[in-house]
Design a protein around this nucleic acid. Sequence first.
DNA 1: TTCAGGTGGATTGTTAACGATCATGTCAAC
DNA 2: GTTGACATGATCGTTAACAATCCACCTGAA
Lengths: 239, 239
Amino acid sequence: MTLPGPSTEQRSSAEEVGEEQIVERIFEAVIEQRLPPGTKLSESALCQAFGVGRMRIRRSLLLLASREVVELHSNRGAFVARPTAKQAREVFEARLAIEPNVARMAAKRANAEDIKTLARHLELESQAHDSGNRRDAIRLSGQFHTMLAQIAGNGVMLRMIKELITRTSLIIGIYGAPGVTNCRDDDHADLIDALRKTDPERASEIMAEHLRHIEARVDLKTKTGAGVDLISVFGARDA
Amino acid sequence: MTLPGPSTEQRSSAEEVGEEQIVERIFEAVIEQRLPPGTKLSESALCQAFGVGRMRIRRSLLLLASREVVELHSNRGAFVARPTAKQAREVFEARLAIEPNVARMAAKRANAEDIKTLARHLELESQAHDSGNRRDAIRLSGQFHTMLAQIAGNGVMLRMIKELITRTSLIIGIYGAPGVTNCRDDDHADLIDALRKTDPERASEIMAEHLRHIEARVDLKTKTGAGVDLISVFGARDA
DNA sequence: TTCAGGTGGATTGTTAACGATCATGTCAAC
DNA sequence: GTTGACATGATCGTTAACAATCCACCTGAA
C-alpha cells in the first residue's frame, strides 16, 4: 500500500516516473474530484506536469481509457469520462454484485493488525469529515473500500474495485447533489465492527446496504455539473 | 456480438483493423489455447499477421497486459501470461464472487429470445464436444458465459468476465489435466433451465457449483504443459 | 448585429530512424 | 571437451520530425 501523498506534483527531473504512477495519480485526482468529468487532458500539459515524454503520457491515457476513466475522442484528445446514466447504473450494479463479497472475504481474513489499520483510517476519515475537508474526505472514504479489498487479499478484485470507485466519483460529480460525499462514516464503522467480530454475513449485508445508500443519493435523471452537457449536445462530433 | 470468424487471418490491406479487433482476436486465440502460456508475441510477427503498423500492435499489447493476459518484459518483449498459482486462485475466487450474481441477473432479465439463443448455442457446444473438436468446444463454452453476461445487461461486468474467462483458459492450460475442457455441458443446460423458469437463486447456485467444479479440476500444485517451467528456467527459446 | 465562410494556430496521430538492450553463435583458452 | 568471453544479429524502447485533423478567430456581407 504505497500511496504517494497527493501533495508533491511536478517533480522536475530525477528518477523517471513510470506510467503506473501516472495512472495512479490521475485516478487519485479523479477520485478527489480535482479533475471533473469532461476535463480535457492535454498531452503537452500532462507532459509538463509529470516531466515525461509524450509516449509515456499516451500510454497512460490509453490505460486510463481501457478502465473507462477517460474517453479518447479521435483527433480531439483525452477527456475525463462523463459516465452516462446507463453506465452509472451498471457501475452501481457491479459494485453491489462484487463488494459485498469482498466485505465477506475481508471479514473472514482480517487479522488484528488489519482491524487496527482500518480503525486508524476511520479516525482520519472522521477528522476530514468534521473539518469540512471535502477532498480528503472523499479520498479517504474511497481508500477505505480499497483497503477492504486488500484485506480480502485478492489482487484481481482489488483492481476492479479501484476502477469502480474512481468511476463512482465521476458519477457523483455529475449526478450527485452538491455537497454529497461518497460514503457515510457510520457504515464504515459498522463494517469495521463486523470485521472485528468475524461476522462475514453481516459485513456483506452492511456493505450492500451501504452501496444502496450511495446509489440512492444520486439522481440519474438530472445532470448537475455546470452544463457540461452542452458540450456534448453542440459540438460533440466524434468519429 | 460481431465475432469475425477466427479463420481469416492476415487480410492483406484494405480496411484498417482497429486495436480493439486485435485485442479481441488475441483473446480468442488464448481462449482456444492456440496461444499457450509463455508464447512469445513478437511485434514484427504480429505486424505481419494483422497487417498493421508497429504502433497499433504496441497499443494492443499494452491493452492486453493491462488485462493481465500478456506479460511485458522490459527489453524482451511480450509473452502470453503464465498465471501463478496465487493468481489462479484469485481468478477463480473472483469468478465465484461475480458470476453467480451474473447468473442471477440474467435469470431475472432473460426473455424468450435470449433463452432460444442460449439453447441454440448449447446445441453447438454439444456438437463440438461430441465430435471431439476441442478448440470449438473450449471457445463455445467460454462464449456461453459471456452470453450470460450480455443477457444480464451489464457492460462493466461483461468486460470483467471476458478477462476472467480468458485467464481461466491460461490457468487450465498450465495446471489442468490434459484433455480437461473448460466446462461441463450439463451445467450449462441446467443453467438455461433455471433461466427458463426465471429462478434467479437456482441459477446463482448452479453457477457457483459449476465454477467450483471447474476449479476442482485443476491442480495448482503441479504444472503440466510439457515442462513450460523449464523453458523459463533455462533460456526461453520459443517463437 | 448576425451569420457564413475562410484562414491560422494548435493539437493529435503516424511514420521513420536511431540507440539500447538482450539473445545467439563463434572462437579461443584451459 | 568444456567453459568463458566476445562479436554479431535481432528485437525492443525512445525520440524526433512530419502529416492530418480540428478548433477558434477573424473577416466580410446581408
